[in-house]
């Protein structure tokens, strides 16, 4: 098939995608959020042990997530903001991965991760209704539902049940990542979405530790049909602690032989003024893929990467 035929054959999925984007925007605007746009080119990024930025040469780096810029807006008093933005991550290519993909990211001042979980419930309910997927539909032969209670599991409980060990007690990043993909994720989010929460503190990233149990961080991921859809947390607002974590992440990158970039000093400076807030990123392409009953991401973007 030539390109014209291929694109024409995608029309139903692309129209469906447009409807989901439209209803997502309506949802946030009706809740009093402001839609923002922040740069795709940046001189500084949060160092992550396992996320590789793509360099834009003299112009800096392409963002792997808009989170640093969005938090700088929260610092300046923007209480509720959302953004639908392309992001770029080197070397990620598979059924559920594109090196360029679309994130929906939103922040709420004076909120924690429980409020975001509530946002997720309302947002998906709203979008499913707009997309004609309420109360449920079939995804690749399996029944999925949106109407009804969602399951909430702690990381600890999920690993004890499906992998037979406690990742909060035992620190083993490699075993964690492998078992998460091979043993835990395949059970999450059937038939309704599942919230996996309270990550070991070593995997807190930019999340604050849980005040009543500092061995875990107030971070959660949203799963549906075994697929990771979103990652959110109660944001860490302690600049000193954040610097220590960034330095540790940088150190891990150094031992793995990954390229090193300067720490995001502008962001760290602004962090001192960050009010208590919570933020989350949701993969739009994956959500469209699920709702459209598409087998992979390539089917729901007009021009998949090579």
């Amino acid at each position: 098939m030539g390109e014209r035929e291929l694109l024409a054959a995608k029309r139903a999925h692309l129209e469906f995608r447009a409807r989901i984007l439209q209803s997502t925007r309506t949802f946030f605007l009706e809740q009093g959020f402001i839609e923002v746009q922040t740069p795709l080119l940046t001189p500084e990024l949060a160092p992550e042990p396992h996320i590789e930025p793509i360099s834009a040469g003299d112009n800096g780096l392409l963002i792997t997530s808009p989170e640093l810029y969005m938090k700088r807006l929260v610092v300046a008093g923007y209480q509720r903001i959302f953004q639908i933005s392309p992001v770029f991550r080197r070397g990620e290519r598979g059924r559920l991965h594109h090196p360029e993909f679309t994130l929906l990211e939103w922040y709420r001042a004076d909120a924690d991760y429980h409020v975001l979980q509530d946002d997720c419930r309302k947002l998906l309910d709203w979008v499913c209704k707009a997309a004609g997927r309420w109360p449920g539909w079939r995804y690749q032969g399996q029944s999925l539902e949106i109407a009804g209670e969602w399951q909430t599991l702690s990381v600890r409980a999920a690993f004890r049940t499906f992998a037979g060990w406690d990742p909060v007690m035992e620190e083993d990043q490699t075993r964690f990542d492998t078992d998460l993909v091979e043993k835990v994720e395949p059970h999450l989010g059937f038939p309704r979405p599942c919230i996996l929460q309270d990550y070991p503190k070593t995997q807190a990233a930019l999340a604050r530790l849980k005040p009543e149990d500092p061995s875990v961080a107030e971070r959660f991921e949203l799963y549906w049909a075994g697929i990771e859809l979103a990652n959110g947390f109660s944001e860490l607002t302690d600049a000193r602690e954040q610097r220590i974590r960034f330095e540790a992440a940088r150190e891990t990158r150094s031992t793995m032989g990954c390229p090193l970039y300067p720490l995001p000093e502008t962001f760290l400076d602004s962090l001192a003024h960050l009010p208590p807030c919570a933020g989350i990123a949701l993969g739009i392409d994956r959500l469209v893929m699920l709702l459209a009953d598409a087998e992979n991401l390539d089917q729901v973007v007009a021009f998949p990467p090579e």
Binding site: E48, H50, I51, G91, E92, R93, G94, R95, L96, H97, Q173, T174, F176, D177, T178, L180, V181, E182, E185, Q203, A205, E221, E228, N231
Partner: peptide
Amino acid sequence: FEFSKPGKGQALYRCRLRNMITGSQFDRT
């Protein structure tokens, strides 16, 4: 071949491999 990666975690490259001499197969990550 399947690429998988938890958002913040390490990438896993899951392969099914076939021995080109004996034809036997196995899976390795």
